[in-house]
């Protein structure tokens, strides 16, 4: 019985310490997030990818030019028949 009351005491202690630490830790995170948003939030870099795409797109036009040429050649051949 005495053992049980000891255990209950431990459990109550753990409950108190646990909740305090959980709140303190997550509270600290709240402060950190707010600070972070202040320094790094705001502007949303929407299109950082565009520059990377551009060289590709020139490639694409070159390719589509080739394709157009091939298609018109095919049409030409077809009409000649």
């Amino acid at each position: 019985m005495e053992n049980l009351s000891n255990l209950l005491g431990d459990a109550a202690n753990l409950m108190l310490v646990g909740m305090v630490v959980v709140f303190a830790f997550l509270g600290l995170l709240i402060i950190c997030i707010e600070l972070m948003s202040k320094f790094f939030g705001g502007e949303i870099e929407t299109k950082p990818v565009q520059s990377a795409i551009r060289p590709n797109s020139t490639n694409d036009t070159a390719r589509s030019a080739k394709i157009t040429a091939a298609i018109s050649a095919a049409i030409h051949q077809h009409r000649q028949k």
């Binding site: 709140f23 997550l26 509270g27 709240i30 997030i33 972070m36 948003s37």
Partner: peptide, 14 residues
């Protein structure tokens, strides 16, 4: 991140 106060709810539920 948009609403960090929600962390308090995650804490309370523990």
């Amino acid at each position: 991140i948009a609403n960090p106060k929600m962390l308090l709810l995650g804490a309370a539920a523990q």
